[in-house]
Design a protein around this nucleic acid. Structure first.
Lengths: 246, 246
DNA sequence: CGCATCGTTGAAATCGATCAAAGTCGGTGG
DNA sequence: CCACCGACTTTGATCGATTTCAACGATGCG
């Protein structure tokens, strides 16, 4: 195991504006800048995940901290009878696994072949202990994620199926823009229709139908099954905000 | 204005297990112990809110940090056409208002006549700056709240109306137990049926019907319109977990 | 090329929403 | 003390958005 002292993780961009930060419940999922990412590659231990392979399960003890280097993951919780709620997706650069509890309250599973680096939990904790500013950074990230969680509650509690899908697409587009730093017109859907449905509190059939609806209204175009082009962004934003129909 | 230097806020119980901690999106809502509460009463400035009166609105600049001393509040977000999602309720001892952003992304409104104490945002920030352990405490609280937010996503995305109400009741009961430190059989509903509906992503009529259903199944009894007695807790827990019917 | 998986589309069913009316509660004033 | 008023809650009947069930189509891999 090529683990190195956590004290070397000083390259974490503490003052970074971090608008693209994403934290998962009881986790930090954070987009790191490329330079830092390169540094972390050297410090952590690599791990490969094939598409569909779980990174950990609900109830697993929390022993590691992860950073996703390539690929994508879904994070979900199951009810006893199999109903599933996807609570988030992870993309390259996201950081995950910090927790105050002893067990994961969810499962993380690779959507596509993925590569990640990990650090032992206790070493990371020690690093945080030694580096006071990181504490603030973690808190700031958590606060951002709380805001995102609140938005998702509005989506799940009060938005229609079409509004949910429009909101989801805008989220993916905006995230891509924050990462690339420039306006984007298209984005990928690395997850299945079922994954999207379980994220939006719908069924895969409804997702498929709403996809057709957005397409027929000229808001989007499906370049391929897993690639979307936004053809009318203001229209999509109206739809997401609840002005799609009266 | 009787504001005092934030440096005197050293009575915050940093090592406190904090299982009853509640944080609202972009906020910390934290149950403080009675001794600390007494200290804060002396340090902060008091404010009264009558039932129905908003504490602040979405878009207000975040200038203060609040602690609820008595009464209760609801926190909600509105969509453009008036649809409302209540994202949380605040109870005595909860702490609220820490944010990394400059504006509130929600509205907080008193459910009943309430009393709260506030501290200026910058003074509180300065206090946090000066007291490194508080940073960790804040982060720990945020992580707890993220776990709660995830649970709420499962509720809103995948639970039936009856399951939502059962889950909500158990939440209120468990919260009361954490605060009192002993088993409880009853709890109050300071919020209206509409508030409950907007929290659970339902309508007030459905809430009323599900209330009748839980009552008719012998899981609860309505002592008064706003006071519930749990008569079959295992049954209520089954219902909340999704085993109510197959 | 054929199979398996995933996605789309159609028809019927259902849960919760909406519309409507009656009941309850607390407060107010006669 | 009681009658009335208004707001909230409950209950009933119907409606509709989304789900469920079913079949068909597309895509990708061996």
């Amino acid at each position: 195991m090529s683990y190195k002292p956590a004290g070397e993780l000083t390259e974490l961009p503490k003052g970074h504006p971090c608008e693209e930060c994403v934290i998962r419940p009881i986790t930090i999922c954070r987009r790191l800048d490329p330079r830092t990412l390169a540094n972390l590659r050297a410090l952590g231990s690599p791990q490969h995940l094939q598409a569909g392979q779980p990174m950990f399960h609900e109830g697993d003890p929390v022993k590691r901290v992860f950073m996703l280097a390539s690929g994508s993951l879904k994070i979900y919780t199951l009810l006893a009878d199999g109903r599933r709620q996807v609570t988030g997706f992870m993309f390259p650069g996201d950081f995950l696994g910090i927790s105050v509890d002893d067990e994961y309250a969810f499962t993380a599973e690779a959507l596509s072949d993925s590569e990640l680096w990990w650090f032992s939990r206790q070493a990371f904790d020690a690093f945080v202990e030694r580096t006071p500013d990181v504490e603030r950074e973690l808190y700031r990230l958590a606060a951002h994620e709380l805001a995102a969680a609140q938005q998702q509650m509005v989506l799940l509690g009060r938005k229609t199926a079409a509004e949910r899908l429009a909101s989801f697409f805008l989220m993916l587009l905006e995230r891509k823009e924050r990462v690339s730093g420039r306006a984007e017109r298209r984005f990928d859907l690395p997850m299945s229709r079922l994954d999207i449905a379980d994220y939006l509190g719908l069924t895969k059939e409804t997702v498929s139908r709403m996809l057709a609806l957005l397409r027929d209204r000229g808001l989007i175009r499906l370049e391929t099954q897993d690639r979307v082009q936004v053809t009318d962004r203001p229209g999509l934003e109206e739809m997401a905000a609840g002005f799609g129909e009266v």
